[in-house]
Amino acid sequence: MKDCEEFRRALGCLRDGEGSGPEGAAIRAHVASCPECGADERLLEAVGLRIRERGGSAEAPIPEGLRDAVLARLRAGEGVILDLRPFLRRAATAAAAVFVCATATAFWQASRHSVRGHAEAGVTREEIVAEIVRLQMGPGR
């Protein structure tokens, strides 16, 4: 058995032309017999009517002077917006490339100095690699 909320949901769809058939008849019958749902339905009809009133007649002509006003604004350059997207895309790509190059250079230089320092201290390359692996694996592994 449906409650009033379910009927209201279904009724909204029905009123919007999004439902029909035998269920539609049952919904209408409920609304006709339920004073609460009937009052709600009339209230929402008033809302729909009011919204349409706010819009004015469907036959109303185009607002006076709209075309001229829009074209005047376009001729004055208002409709032209500077599209910065291609520039920003290129700038972002360049910045990313610079960042990658700078990081790689810094890393290379640091590792070079580190190897040289260790070599001077008598540590072999294999020992350095083993130490790096140990550090990356974390303590206790």
Partner: peptide, 24 residues
């Protein structure tokens, strides 16, 4: 640019109606 006026003429009334639903 002036060709845009055709679109304003074509849809201006409907758009005005729609906007009145949002703007008092």
């Amino acid at each position: 640019t002036d060709a845009f006026g055709v679109l304003v003429d074509r849809y201006g009334a409907r758009l005005a109606r729609l906007v009145r639903g949002f703007v008092r």
